[in-house]
Amino acid sequence: MKIVVCVKHVPDAAADRTFTEDGSTDRASVDSLLSELDEYAIEQALRIAEADGADTEISYLTVGPDDARDALRKALAMGGDSAIHVSDEGIEGSDAFGTSLVLARAIERHGFDLVLCGMASTDGAMGVVPAMLAERLGVPAVTHVEGLTVDDGTVSGRREGDGATVSVQGTLPAVVSVTDRSGDARYPSFKGIMAAKRKPVETLDLADLGVDPAQVGRSGARSAVDTTARRPPRTKGEIVVDDGAGGAGLAAFLTARKFI
């Protein structure tokens, strides 16, 4: 089975993230790392491969600037076989439509039985790329699931949807996205980190994929940011040390604010 795991290199959520003047994420000012939510997708791929034996091949795919390669190295250190890095100046400023187009073309070029994604990227957090990938590839989308099982050409999982928990099943080939409840991700071992250095990473650009530059990047974006503004920092209120009357003091505060 051929598995492609889509992984994104994102600005560290723990850092102070900002925007550039044109309203796109400022990637220069903070460190970036492999999106934590994509580690769950990697973990599922590795577990499937372990259960399946030698027949499973895992490739990682990322679309992003030069340093996105770091995300691929981290993934390869966890396990898997090879990676594809799509990088092109024309991709800068892409929205989910542009990103999903590039990903879809790269996935088609490579071939796949299963595409695994995280539930959302920790920077954009739209959680729509997997659905768009399925739409573009014309295959079933088993998204936002935990309790993932792959067998006999089907893929199933449990999904906490908008108003209900549903158990869903689709046939392969398919696009699957997993939540942070799908199973804890492993840490790369020292051996894994060393082995990752020798695993092949292919670099592709838009021309290699036959993607029209007008469809991606800023020119292909279908929405525009008008303004970005930092929320005014909250003014820290009164912090009292409980001397035996902390609960009563809290009740007085809530009464003053008309919650009681």
Binding site: R17, R222, A224, V225, D226, T228
Partner: peptide, 10 residues
């Protein structure tokens, strides 16, 4: 931490 306003262009 940020408020963003935006509109769809297509």
């Amino acid at each position: 931490t940020y408020q963003v306003t935006a509109h769809v262009t297509r």
